[in-house]
Write a protein that binds this DNA or RNA. Structure first.
Lengths: 252, 252
DNA sequence: TATGTTCTTTTGTTCAGACATTATACAAAC
DNA sequence: GTTTGTATAATGTCTGAACAAAAGAACATA
């Protein structure tokens, strides 16, 4: 009965022994299909090698030739004495990595809250003027957000927007920030230049984030640029270090 | 005559059939040595598979198991009907923001010092075993380095190396680490998976880095992977936050 | 209760051999 | 001379089989 089910599942056990396509590639294809099957994504073990071998009429060695690659790609996880199953998706870091924070969270299915949102108009100080490449004293918008999960806030964001963008201060900042930028202002961020360091919580941050003074805080400053290398936003984030780790993949 | 030469070249045809290290890994090691040989780098074909098989007393299948990976890493080029040779080295890739730390510094013309270097052999704990994908308790090398500028150390590094690499502990760790890995071990890092967070200095770190206890410390954990997605090194760095900021460009 | 001990299941490693496919060189045919 | 076969050499694919090693379960023992 479970046997029948399995055979059913293997819809494309259509191995063509006469095809010029090597068998191991055909097997790989079939396995990739299986990997997409929700049943296997949910942790069910793949048919064991000997079974696959029998069912497909292909030697176990050839089966392994195919699975080897998939294991290397970290799509499958094999465990000696146990079995083979589909690897949990590496959610985050993939594309996300650098999308806006709320999108990051959203993509991971984490429910996200704004505890405070405040918009104000300020004059650029030295730091801001350097980062956003505007003259000191230039008027621009400052957005402050205290954000976190149900159990409380864990990050305090300050954003400054380049005047060129034309932020009015009346935007709905409950929406994803980069959504607003892309769709309302046709401003597409393509580069994020980040500086990360560690500081101790001062009184202000301690209160906002609900931690003792002098707790460890992860500070991320970043300037986001458009395709013409013009700065869009200067963003400073203060993260509770006990609740947040900054993850990133760097390829070369 | 040419036969004799070849046998000479294969200095380490020391296959140990009783070793717990799988034969295909031993073969891989030998091949990496061959890749180092200038003769082969100049385009000479490697011994053909059947010969290798005979000489090492190992089946051709197992030889291929090893070469497969090296081909995947683009260190070897196999051509059906022709032979196998060492691939031309890729041009020194853009030493973008992720080369090793000393290289980074070096490129910026900053003079760099090692205050302490210590190598030891340890057993993998849970964390290490997860990060490096080895079994808990497995023996491997731990490298500790206290590094900084003339005015004192500002980072404490701990590195763990995957046993597969074959670190002996006798390397000259004054050299750039990734130089050693690439040129001595033909292990090319292509991906760095990093986790950055903030902590407070404990007694140990405070002494090493010359800061008060409970100072802000930037902690970077990273696992560096080879082209086959196998972990090479697990590295933990503790930076004086008052002297170091982590900078990175993220493009999309 | 805790701790070994043994058995079973499943992947990991290795082997020896067969035949396919591709590239090359050389010879034969046009 | 150019093309076309043919032999040879090398890697590519595939098989069937055996045993090793790890994980887990069931069981026994202290």
């Amino acid at each position: 009965m479970s046997e029948q089910k399995n055979i059913q599942t293997l819809k494309s056990l259509s191995i063509d022994h006469d095809s010029p396509v090597p068998l191991h590639l055909q097997v790989e294809k079939i396995l990739r299909d299986m990997i997409n099957d929700p049943e296997y994504q949910n942790g069910k073990f793949l048919p064991k090698e000997v079974d696959l071998s029998k069912r497909l009429g292909i030697s176990r060695n050839t089966i392994r030739q195919a699975t080897n690659r998939l294991v290397q790609e970290k799509l499958l996880i094999r465990k000696k004495g146990v079995g083979t199953k589909v690897a949990k998706k590496q959610v985050e870091t993939k594309l996300s990595n650098w999308v806006s924070f709320s999108q990051e969270m959203h993509a991971q299915g984490i429910d996200f809250r704004n505890y405070e949102i405040k918009v104000s108009q300020i004059k650029a100080d030295t730091d801001i003027s350097e980062q956003l490449e505007v003259k000191e004293g230039h008027e621009l918008f400052k957005l402050e957000r205290l954000r976190g999960l149900d159990n409380g806030p864990f990050v305090y964001f300050i954003s400054y927007f380049h005047p060129r963008i034309g932020i009015t201060g009346n935007e709905d900042f409950e929406r994803h920030l980069y959504d607003i930028l892309e769709h309302e202002y046709h401003t597409i961020p393509v580069l994020s230049r980040e500086q990360i360091s560690a500081i101790l919580a001062n009184k202000f941050l301690a209160v906002k984030l609900g931690v003792p003074v002098n707790s460890a805080i992860l500070q991320r400053k970043r300037v986001v640029y458009d395709p013409g290398n013009r700065p869009i936003e200067y963003n400073i984030g203060y993260y509770r270090a006990d609740q947040f780790t900054y993850s990133i993949d760097i390829k070369r």
